[in-house]
Nucleic acid binder design. Structure first.
Lengths: 180, 180
DNA sequence: AAAGATTGACCGCTCAATCTTG
DNA sequence: CAAGATTGAGCGGTCAATCTTT
């Protein structure tokens, strides 16, 4: 006992500033995008990602687990959200033919209309809030930085199906609004 | 009527990838940092920012509005959180002497102990999850990118006191753990 | 028994309404 | 009456327990 713990490596001024800024972005940017979607289309960003993910998936169909991964959400959160989307007629669910444990979420025609209506405004907001203020090389840089950080970040335990990750997006989108 | 709406400017493949990555980071990074603080110190990141902000403020004191700005939170959220922190004995509140409309939040000795205990682990997590995987020039780049995006982002309406913004951090920190 | 998914109780955030001070 | 702050109702997310299919 009485083991001396190592002096913490504090952040340099540059790092501290970058971190404070990043913290601000992580809070305010999603809030701004959520506000736009909610106001114009009555959707949360999470709901939009669900519908958008399905719109890009083969046969507009995706297993709940894959969809959870795609949306960066827990399976239980997704389950709740999909239930509500189903009540709104935007999605339906059925067990996968090949294995009854898997549940497929399927975009309905009405769900398609919802994404299609929401996509332009959302993409416009993303463009205005992010890419319009960045130089092209900053976009590249942002992508690389994000990739590195994300690769170092395991899914917040209790999310996710252990086995097959990322079946989504491994083929090309059948059609628009595959935009995010 | 029948006004033709402009064809939406979709995202380029690079932009789309950057945005998907960023979306992942915005969800998973806060979750990871929250998990560390919760597990090791029983604090949410928001609570930590509150205590940390006070620890850096003059006399360990800050107006509720300034603190809300600093923490990127709504005044009402802050009010609820500070109430709980007060019940835990980490903070106390009193009206500002010069103007009874202003409420000052003040860090207690116990609150100081809490931040001091939590800071090393939190900073270590920030370092491990972000700066350890980035080259120095990427840190610079991240800071610039974040600044641009943030500058373009007004506070989500209903947050914030209209007048005096950012009284916090305009003087130098009295002491550690001023490390965010 | 394990994987995939769902459920419900708890907790915290949001929004609008309210209170208080100047 | 306006600015600053608080309150409470409603809603949505989390976590652990449960259900179902293999």
């Amino acid at each position: 006992m009485n083991q001396q713990q190592p002096e913490p490596r504090w952040l340099s001024p540059d790092e501290l500033r970058a971190w404070m800024t990043l913290a601000g972005v992580m809070v305010r940017l999603p809030a701004a995008l959520d506000a736009q979607l909610q106001r114009d289309n009555g959707l949360s960003m999470f709901e939009y990602f669900v519908l958008s993910g399905l719109s890009m998936a083969e046969n507009h169909t995706s297993r709940m687990s894959d969809l959870a991964e795609f949306t960066n959400g827990s399976l239980s959160r997704l389950s709740n959200v999909v239930k509500r989307l189903e009540q709104r007629g935007a999605v339906r669910r059925e067990p996968a033919p090949e294995n009854g444990r898997y549940i497929n979420a399927i975009l309905t025609a009405h769900g398609w209309d919802l994404v299609e209506a929401a996509a332009p405004g959302h993409v416009e907001a993303v463009r205005r809030l992010i890419f319009d203020v960045l130089a092209p090389e900053q976009v590249t840089s942002l992508g690389e930085i994000g990739d590195r950080v994300l690769a170092n970040l395991e899914p917040p335990s209790a999310w996710l199906s252990p086995s097959n990750a990322g079946a989504l997006l491994e083929h090309d989108p059948p059609a628009p609004p595959g935009q995010a």
